Simulated scan of single mutants.
Amino acid sequence: MIKKAVRMKLYPGLKEEYAKRHDELWPEMREMLKEHGAISYSIFLDPETDYLFGYLEIEDEGKWASVPDTEINRKWWDYMKDMMETNPDHSPVSVELEQVFEL
């Protein structure tokens, strides 16, 4: 198992809508994530800064690296672009975080 963490930025005031969209995650998106090796995926919010912290456990970096190329993932990015900082291709602006401790 490989652990990954990322930081993203939610626009202010959109916590409830962001959570709602994820609570209603499309079945085909859920299936694609599992097919690409996602064992678990959690997202946390720092309400003081609107930073999102994503924590993932994946099976394989190679399988995971192809997620951005899937049609359903690009559709999800388009759906979420109005809620968070994004790149020109509508992917979330994200910073990979470095693990510095584990118990």
Rank of each mutant, 00 (worst) to 15 (best):
E71G: 00
G37T: 05
L14F: 05
D46R: 12
P12C: 07
G13L: 03
A19S: 08
D89M: 02
W26P: 01
T86G: 02
V67S: 00
Y18W: 12
E59Y: 02
Y55F: 15
I58G: 01
L10V: 08
K9S: 12
D78E: 14
E24L: 12
W77C: 07
L25C: 13
E61P: 14
E17D: 14
Y51A: 08
S94V: 06
H36Q: 10
D89F: 03
M80G: 03
H36P: 02
M32W: 02
L33N: 08
E61F: 14
K15N: 03
P92K: 09
K20F: 13
G54V: 14
M84K: 11
T70Q: 03
E102L: 10
W26N: 06
E17S: 09
Y55I: 13
I39D: 00
E48S: 15
P88N: 04
D50Q: 11
A65G: 13
D69C: 04
E28W: 00
E48L: 15
P47G: 06
A5G: 05
M83C: 04
D78Y: 09
M32I: 09
E28F: 01
S66L: 11
I58K: 02
P12S: 06
T49M: 12
E98I: 12
E16I: 06
E102Q: 13
L33M: 15
K81D: 01
L103D: 06
T49Q: 11
S91L: 07
P88Y: 02
D23Q: 12
L97F: 10
H22G: 12
M8N: 06
Y41S: 15
L45A: 06
K4M: 10
L103E: 08
E57G: 00
E48Y: 13
M8E: 09
E16S: 10
L103Q: 07
T70S: 03
S40R: 13
I39Q: 00
S94H: 13
M84E: 14
M29R: 12
E71Y: 01
D78M: 08
Y41C: 11
A65C: 08
A38G: 09
E61T: 09
K63L: 15
R21T: 07
M8Q: 13
K34I: 15
S40N: 10
E96C: 03
F53K: 02
W76D: 00
F101V: 11
V6A: 04
R21A: 06
P27M: 07
E48A: 15
P92R: 08
Y18N: 06
S66G: 01
V6Q: 05
A19L: 11
D82E: 14
S91P: 05
L103M: 10
W77R: 05
E35L: 15
I72L: 03
S94N: 10
R7L: 07
E102F: 07
E98C: 05
I43W: 04
M83Y: 02
E98R: 09
Y51W: 15
P88W: 02
Y55V: 11
G13N: 05
V93I: 11
A19D: 08
W77V: 00
S42M: 09
W64H: 14
K63Q: 15
D78A: 14
N87Y: 01
E35G: 12
P88F: 03
R21H: 09
E102R: 10
H22N: 15
K75A: 03
E17R: 14
Y51N: 13
L45C: 04
